[in-house]
């Protein structure tokens, strides 16, 4: 599964994109799996309310299932316009 990070999430984790082998059932499971890996992930995911997630480039929720999903993106609330 491809995981992409933007803005300060990318800065905290230290990379823009990575490929992860996972059996996580939901976004929350994936977050728990990543957070357990290393401190920088735990830091980036410490406050889920400050994050947004997109599944295959559509905004989604942290309790959404990951079955069939190819790309997961984590980023802070958007500031367009």
């Amino acid at each position: 599964m491809d995981i992409v990070y933007f803005a300060w999430v990318r800065e905290r984790i230290g990379l823009p994109r990575e490929v992860v082998e996972t059996t996580a059932a939901t976004v929350m499971d994936l977050v728990a799996e990543l957070s357990a890996r290393e401190e920088r992930y735990a830091m980036a995911f410490s406050d889920i309310s400050a994050l947004r997630v997109a599944l295959d480039q559509e905004l989604s929720d942290f309790d959404a299932p990951l079955e069939g999903v190819r790309e997961v993106a984590f980023f802070p609330p958007m500031t367009g316009g």
């Binding site: 933007f6 803005a7 300060w8 997109a54 905004l59 993106a73 980023f75 802070p76 609330p77 958007m78 500031t79 367009g80 316009g81």
Partner: peptide
């Protein structure tokens, strides 16, 4: 403003901030 995936970072003499 809040549903298009853009993120702005301001860079000034005092540093950079999202």
């Amino acid at each position: 403003k809040s549903r298009a995936p853009f993120w702005k970072r301001e860079i000034s003499a005092s540093g950079a901030a999202w």
